[in-house]
Design a protein around this nucleic acid. Structure first.
Lengths: 187, 187
DNA sequence: GTCTATATGGCGATAGAC
DNA sequence: GTCTATCGCCATATAGAC
C-alpha cells in the first residue's frame, strides 16, 4: 500500500481510538510506518491529515449504513436490520466520539463531516419512516423527524453506556428496548 | 474560596470542556488562579486531581437527577420531568463525554465513577418503570431494564447529535420522539 | 518522495527557597 | 502553603540534504 494511503488509514484508526487531541503526528507516523518528512510532504500537517481521515470515515460510515437501508423489506425490517447489525460496540462510533473532541468541534472544517454524517442518517431514517406511514405500517400521527432522531440517539447513547460499563450489555438492552417501543406504534 | 476548592472546580469545568487528554495542569492552575507548587502540594498530580473532580461531578449529577426522580407523580410524569428538565445541551454530558477520553477509559480509577453513574441512572429509571408497572401505568410485558437503558441512551445520544449539529434541535427532537413512543406503552 | 537535523514551545513533574 | 527554578520529554513543525 502507498504511503499516503497508510497515513490516512492509520489516522482514521488513531482518531477512532484516541480522538484528535489525543493523537500526535509522531504516533501517526509510527502506525503508518512513514517518516516525518514523508508525512509533511503529503500533508500540510496534523489538521489536514485529520480532515482527510474524517471525511474518509464519514463516507465509509454512510456506505455501511446505506447497505441496511437500501434492502427491500418493510420500514420496520430495514430499521431493525440497521439497529441490530454487527457493531464493534466497545470502540464506540467513530463519528460520534469526535463530538467530544474540543479541537474537532472548534474547527469548522473538521466538524463539517461529522455534522453532515448525522444529518444524513437522521434524514435517511425519516424517509424510511415516512415510507412506512405511506404504506400503512405506522400511524399517520407518528412524527418521522422526531422518531428518526430518537433512533439515531439510542445508537449513539448505547455506545456511551456500553463504553462506560465496559460491556456490550447496556447497548444491547437499549436497542432491544427501542425495538419494542417501535413495535408499539406499528399497526 | 480556598485554593483546593478552586482547583477541583476548575478541573471539573475543564474536564467537561476539553476532556482529560485535552486538559493540562497549567490550564488548571490558570483557571484556578493557583500556582504550580500550590497544585502539587494539594494533589499528587493531574490524575489524582481528575479523580477528585470526576467523583465530585458524578455526585452532583446523581443529586440533580434524583431531584426529578424523587418528586411525587406518576412514573411517566417523573420520567418526563427528568427528560425535559433544563439542560446545557451543547456542552454535552460531563460523564458521557468522558467515555470518549482514551486515558479515562484506560484508567480503572478514573473510569469507575463514570461507570457507577450510568449504572445508577439505569437502575433508578428501571425502579421507576417497575413502580409504573405495579400500579398499572404500564403493561406487564414492558421490560424495565431495557426501557431504562433506552431512555438513558436517548439522552446521551441526544447530546451527541446536538453537538454534531451545533444546535439543540436534534436533542429536543429525540426527547420528544421518545416521550411519544413511551406514551404508546402507557395504559 | 523520504531522510535527518534542528527549533520552539508546552507537558507533567520535582526541588528547594520563602 | 505558595513561589520560582529547573528538568527531561514530547508535540508540531521547518529546513535542507539525498
Amino acid at each position: 500500500m502507498e504511503t499516503v494511503e497508510r497515513l490516512i488509514r492509520s489516522t482514521q484508526e488513531l482518531l477512532w481510538e484516541r480522538g484528535y487531541v489525543g493523537t500526535s503526528p509522531k504516533a501517526i507516523q509510527v502506525a503508518a510506518d512513514a517518516g516525518q518528512g514523508s508525512m509533511y510532504h503529503h500533508f500540510s500537517g496534523k489538521a489536514e491529515l485529520a480532515k482527510t481521515a474524517i471525511e474518509r470515515s464519514a463516507a465509509e460510515l454512510r456506505a455501511t449504513a446505506e447497505e441496511q437501508f437500501a434492502t427491500d423489506g418493510t420500514a420496520t425490517e430495514r430499521i431493525t436490520q440497521y439497529l441490530q447489525r454487527d457493531r464493534e460496540v466497545l470502540k464506540g462510533c467513530r463519528m460520534g466520539r469526535l463530538t467530544s473532541d474540543p479541537d474537532v468541534m472548534t474547527d469548522p472544517v473538521l466538524r463539517a463531516p461529522v455534522d453532515q454524517t448525522f444529518r444524513w442518517i437522521r434524514t435517511r431514517l425519516a424517509e424510511i419512516i415516512a415510507e412506512g406511514k405511506q404504506n400503512g405500517e405506522y400511524a399517520e400521527s407518528l412524527d418521522a423527524q422526531e422518531t428518526a432522531a430518537t433512533i439515531a440517539a439510542v445508537l449513539q447513547g448505547g455506545y456511551v453506556l456500553a463504553r462506560a460499563a465496559n460491556s456490550d450489555e447496556p447497548f444491547e438492552l437499549a436497542i432491544q428496548g427501542l425495538v419494542k417501543l417501535l413495535a408499539g406504534v406499528t399497526r
